[in-house]
Design a protein around this nucleic acid. Structure first.
Lengths: 339, 339
DNA sequence: CTGAAAGCGCTTACAG
DNA sequence: CTGAAAGCGCTTACAG
């Protein structure tokens, strides 16, 4: 007879469809006794909700969207995103909410997907990452009226609630550590300049350099790729006055940089200290293992999920959430500079 | 007035809802002229389909599922999966089909998700990966009657169509290359023994060793983690008669192994040759860059997507697809053994 | 606390 | 080729 519907349950239990719906959704409107009976029947008949019917009836789609803009072929889903994804899923799955993931070519395509999924009622909300300096996505999402949680901040994300960590403090802690070791020439292989967090880190380095009286503190923008990370490292190490420490905005670039140093015969950490802004298995498996900024990205994902679920339940609940500032895990890629 | 529905379009165009539906879906039942007019009106009104309503009406959910069983916290989505995911999405998005991704703890949970998503009509089909030796998922998916494409083979996947590459041939090409260089003691850090492809590779190495008259050809199973990859490498390199070459079943393990060799002062490739069964940015960014088996994982993903879409269109179209055998990309981690 | 009914926005036989 | 109607499986006012 195919899958059972609430009509089947209603007939079996001798009540109306409405009563079944109330009972199944834990809403008032049925007596405790009736509810129990209905739930038992539903269980016996192995009833499962039909997600499309639920969504049509006016309830939620039961899914949220995460859209990442990156060229399809070059997608090396970074460890950071892998961990974030895990955390998001763990957080959402507690409330049986699915995560719809899509990777698109660029921001324009990303916006198109937001419009499409919203108008198709495919998702109930969005998670927004990679906050840009002047981010065109913010306006679109606000206009669409879709519940959205932004990963990143503080500030610059319209009225959308955000979950953020203090990138500035994090960068300061790295620079202070390197300065304490005696480093005076520090380079920073930054990410895409269009990203807000890239700008924050660059500014933090500049400010710290002035305060600590460093000789040099250079931020070089990259596209986050291993290729640019390697190329920029090569350029830096080929200079006469080369930096004694390089801070990399991602673990992939840091490992690529380490590879270049090894290839050029520059000893790490003897002649060059390396710090990665992201910690991951990558930072651990190379030799020497990299000093890196550790944060609990899995938990971060869970928190983003919880924040979005809270907004879905009650739009007025939207509030920014600051997460703990990442801490430096010192491994073997950093040391007192030789000279 | 909120989002337009086909009823609005019908009114505006002076036709019935049915006619609008036919026109919008490119089905026969309306004249070319009427169709054009309806499409224009839909365009003007910025109509978009409501996915839930479509699904309820009996059409497709417009989404397919990919469920990965791995412990949530340890999820380092490997480069292989990142690439595969990209390809899958590229392939599915051509037909506006979304990919619903979920990471679960184990196979039991994975099966539960298949049952749930199927009964909720949340997806139209599944992509199955990480084929196991006696895979309980096959029976479940066949019983559910869900269109499914298996990544892996040949054989051992019931009546479900599969897209596969020849792992045996691939392993043979590696061993033959190493033997030609003069290696006689070769070790193989294999993946989880429960996986079919692990068994295939182990068998291929054993067969090749016999044929080529190798002194030693040892396969050690691991859990694919960098930790076990490192530990096993350490054990191998500490032996009196250590292997002159190690084949790693994943890039993450190969990089971890390279780290251990560096740490132990074993020169690569002078004293130890390293080959990775998976190529990726990881294999390229370390120093020395790793000789690895290259395959076009992105295209593989696209092919899996196309195969599933074909099955969704016509269940009778199910057919296995063999993809090109991966080829060895020789880099700097392999050489003639020193002694 | 409960029932009967309408409605969500589509698709799909069934008549004409 | 086209129209009017029923139906997909839920949810949600609205009466009682």
């Amino acid at each position: 007879m195919g899958r059972p519907t609430i009509a089947d349950i209603a007939r079996q239990a001798g009540v109306s469809k409405g009563a079944v719906s109330f009972a199944l959704n834990g809403r008032p409107g049925v007596s405790e006794e009736t509810r129990t009976r209905i739930l038992r029947v539903a269980e016996e008949m192995k009833w499962r909700p039909h997600s499309a019917a639920r969504a049509l009836g006016g309830a939620r789609a039961g899914a949220v969207g995460l859209v990442l803009a990156r060229p399809a072929r070059t997608l090396g889903l970074e460890p950071f995103f892998a961990q974030l994804l895990s955390g998001l899923q763990a957080g959402f799955s507690v409330h049986s909410t699915a995560l719809q993931l899509l990777v698109v070519e660029d921001t324009a395509a990303e916006i198109e997907v937001y419009r499409r999924w919203a108008s198709e009622h495919r998702v109930d909300g969005f998670v927004l990452v990679d906050l840009q300096v002047r981010d065109p996505r913010i306006d679109v999402l606000e206009e669409l009226g879709m519940p959205t949680v932004v990963l990143g901040g503080p500030g610059k994300h319209g009225k959308l609630p955000s979950v953020w960590a203090d990138d500035r403090e994090a960068m300061l802690s790295i620079v202070e550590y390197l300065a304490a070791l005696g480093h005076r020439r520090i380079a920073h292989l930054a990410g895409l300049p269009a990203f807000q967090h890239t700008q924050r880190r660059i500014r933090a380095l500049r400010d710290a350099a002035k305060r600590l009286g460093l000789t040099e503190a250079l931020s070089l923008p990259t596209d986050f790729s291993d290729a640019e990370g390697a190329a920029a490292t090569r350029t830096l190490l080929a200079r006469r006055e080369r930096p004694t420490a390089i801070i990399y905005d991602s673990d992939v670039m840091a490992v690529a940089g380490l590879g270049v140093a090894t290839e050029m015969g520059v000893a790490v950490p003897g002649e060059l200290s390396i710090v990665s802004f992201d910690d991951s298995v990558l930072a651990r498996i190379v030799h020497p293992p990299l000093t890196a900024l550790s944060r609990d990205t899995f938990t971060l994902g869970e928190q983003v999920a919880q924040t979005l679920l809270a907004v879905l339940d009650d739009p007025a609940a939207a509030a920014d959430l600051k997460t703990p500032t990442p801490r430096l895990t010192v491994r073997e890629s950093t040391a007192v500079p030789r000279r």
